[in-house]
Design a protein around this nucleic acid. Sequence first.
DNA 1: TATATTTATCGTAATATTGCGATAGATATG
DNA 2: CATATCTATCGCAATATTACGATAAATATA
Lengths: 109, 109
Amino acid sequence: MGLTKTEIFTDKQNKLAQMMKALAHPARIAIIQSLIKAQACVCGDLVDELGLAQATISQHLKELKNAGLIQGTIEGTSVCYCIDPKVWKQYKEAFDTFFVAYKNKDNCC
Amino acid sequence: MGLTKTEIFTDKQNKLAQMMKALAHPARIAIIQSLIKAQACVCGDLVDELGLAQATISQHLKELKNAGLIQGTIEGTSVCYCIDPKVWKQYKEAFDTFFVAYKNKDNCC
DNA sequence: TATATTTATCGTAATATTGCGATAGATATG
DNA sequence: CATATCTATCGCAATATTACGATAAATATA
């Protein structure tokens, strides 16, 4: 079918899975890392930096925007992107909570 | 095309994206959380717990196994799954490193 | 106003993912 | 040995993702 059965999972599980999905592509990882490295807004340099077509990058930026991770500000003919600190914190905390839940107890088979 | 251009990204970026992908489905999140909650191996109870068909769960387990996150031990007619502590730690550290890299500097547009 | 620059969107093709029924394979149990 | 139980795999259908050329929309510049 190809359609995830979200209704049988909790909101938290669905949300966490969606967060993972937002970052489950090397281009989106690279975009985020580029924004972090720049320590500021990045206005249109992304197409030169990554080796993907402009349309493709625009699509990935849209997904990151939909995920809330980045925000774009129109600046003349170009658009400046930066990370949304608030959402970033939410992601960080959700991931931390998930990974901290497991403690190795050495009682495994 | 539908084929990710891994060759234009770094190994780390590709690996991190793949890690995210392994957890980018609520069923796989639920399976991992179930293993954590059990604090031990889980042998075949997963099909009853989740509302998915046996074939579907087997497929998700396979993906988690391919990702290295879980390991299965044959126990009679059933298979017991548990989290691989070593790989879990690697995931945790990779995610931590990624999220720690960004510091909000309030110099955004 | 005409042209250049930049980004978003549309349409399309190729591939991947999700889900499940059917079935095969392995190991218990009668 | 026959049967039951449990898991993996195959095959299929529906949907999603990835990538890109073409084009539209918006703004700057000559």
